[in-house]
């Protein structure tokens, strides 16, 4: 099975976020970059499928030169080769524009499966996967936690509200937008990094892919979220506070 995983480089979770002078983006100096979280889960799922059914995992990323480090990371974790769409104006393109770039690079590859993250940690449109499927004329499912290959195609596990899940079947080729947390991510290893040095990274320019740049969505302004404090101090004995905490985590925060 040939699987393409579209990954994006985004500011690291701990990066200090400051809005730049233009008010439309953050200051990029002094920021460290990382692989978008749900893309990391998409890559993990692809690698597990390859380990089970053999085949090839190709990572695809559009972005400036710095995106190369994230591509190397994906290769170190086990992807076989990579395509880097060199493009410095990612910020000027909307989700449709980026999807057109990616689709142009994907078409000649004819993959059996295309995985993307659910949404990016920076812009969070959650659109790229959906539009890609439309552009490529392939079936699509989103919020996927787990993918199983069957004789007919795929069985995938979708996340619904309130702790419900849905299992659906799809033919291949297909496009899936992967949710975070479905599997356990692997750590990068020294052996992986050394082996990745010799793996192929093909660089394509945005120009040669001839995808239209014109945006239909314009970003007006970005703002930092308002800070709000809602700390509650629970009092009582250790037993009482523990019980109260479980209560709150279950019914207020709904994380248990």
């Amino acid at each position: 099975m040939k699987i393409i995983v579209a990954i994006k480089q985004v500011p690291e979770r701990e990066a200090p976020v400051r809005i730049d002078a233009g008010g439309k983006w953050i200051e990029e100096a002094n920021i460290q970059w990382a692989m978008n979280e749900s893309d990391a889960y998409a890559l993990e799922e692809a690698l597990q499928l390859k380990e089970k059914h053999s085949g090839e995992v190709v990572v695809l990323s559009a972005g400036p030169e710095r995106a190369g480090t994230t591509i190397r990371e994906a290769l170190a974790k086990g992807a076989d080769r990579a395509i880097h769409i060199a493009c410095d104006d990612l910020g000027d393109r909307d989700a449709l524009g980026v999807a057109r770039l990616l689709a142009a690079a994907i078409k000649p590859e004819n993959p059996d499966l295309l995985l993307t993250g659910l949404q990016s940690d920076d812009l969070g449109y959650g659109q790229t996967g959906v539009i890609l499927a439309e552009l490529l004329g392939l079936p699509h499912a989103s919020l996927i936690l787990h993918v199983e290959k069957t004789d007919a195609g795929l069985t995938v596990k979708r996340e619904l509200e309130e702790g419900w899940f849905q299992n659906i079947e799809l033919p291949i080729p297909a496009v899936l937008s992967m949710q975070s947390g479905g599997s356990k991510l692997r750590y990068a290893t020294l052996m992986g990094i050394k082996r990745a040095r010799t793996k192929e990274v093909r660089t394509l320019s945005a120009a040669e892919l001839a995808a239209p740049v014109a945006s239909s969505v314009r970003l007006e302004r970005i703002a930092l979220p308002q800070k709000q404090k809602s700390t509650q101090i629970l009092s009582g004995t250790a037993k009482e506070t523990a019980a109260a905490l479980v209560e709150k985590l279950k019914f207020e925060a709904r994380i248990l």
């Binding site: 979770r13 990382a34 356990k184 692997r186 750590y187 290893t189 992986g192």
Partner: peptide, 21 residues
């Protein structure tokens, strides 16, 4: 660990925390 043969949920969590954070 360097070859990825060690699998441990807690270990991976520590490594991932230090890879990113």
């Amino acid at each position: 660990v360097n070859t990825g043969a060690w699998e441990s949920d807690h270990g991976s969590r520590l490594f991932l925390a230090l890879e990113r954070g």
